[in-house]
Computed example of a mutant assay.
Amino acid sequence: MEKKLKRTKYAEERLVDLTLCIKRDKKFVFECTLNFRWGASAHIENDDYDFAAGLSKLLDVLDQKVKKENDKMQEKK
């Protein structure tokens, strides 16, 4: 899991915090809340029967959110 989270290492300077919650019922439910240093926040939710696939999908969406927020901030400057 740590190896997969290293994919978001580049966003470290843009984030105040990242909260990741993983629940398991019949399938894995991944919830992630991001708080950016400029006051924006984002909530991502994903579910999957396979842990690795679900986490990978979540990190893909997280990566897109960070890039989108970063682009918004670059446009405002």
Results as ranks from 00 to 15, higher is better:
Met1Arg: 05
Glu2His: 09
Glu2Pro: 04
Glu2Arg: 08
Lys3Trp: 05
Lys6Arg: 10
Arg7Lys: 12
Tyr10Asn: 09
Tyr10Leu: 04
Leu15Pro: 13
Leu15Lys: 07
Asp17Phe: 10
Asp17Ala: 05
Asp17Met: 07
Leu18Phe: 05
Thr19Ala: 12
Thr19His: 13
Thr19Lys: 15
Lys23Val: 08
Lys23Gly: 13
Lys23Cys: 09
Arg24Glu: 14
Asp25Cys: 08
Lys27Ala: 06
Val29Pro: 00
Phe30Trp: 02
Glu31His: 07
Cys32Gly: 05
Thr33Ser: 15
Thr33Gln: 14
Thr33Tyr: 07
Leu34Pro: 05
Asn35Thr: 13
Asn35Gly: 06
Asn35Glu: 14
Phe36Gln: 08
Ala40Gln: 14
Ala42Glu: 15
Ala42Tyr: 04
His43Val: 14
Glu45Asp: 01
Glu45Asn: 04
Glu45Pro: 02
Asp48Pro: 02
Asp50Lys: 05
Asp50Trp: 00
Ala53Asp: 10
Gly54Met: 00
Leu55Phe: 00
Ser56Phe: 01
Ser56His: 02
Ser56Arg: 02
Lys57Ala: 10
Lys57Arg: 15
Lys57His: 08
Leu58Arg: 02
Asp63Asn: 12
Lys67Ser: 03
Glu69Val: 02
Asn70Thr: 13
Lys72Trp: 07
Lys72Val: 08
Glu75Lys: 15
Lys76Arg: 15
Lys77Cys: 08
Lys77Trp: 06
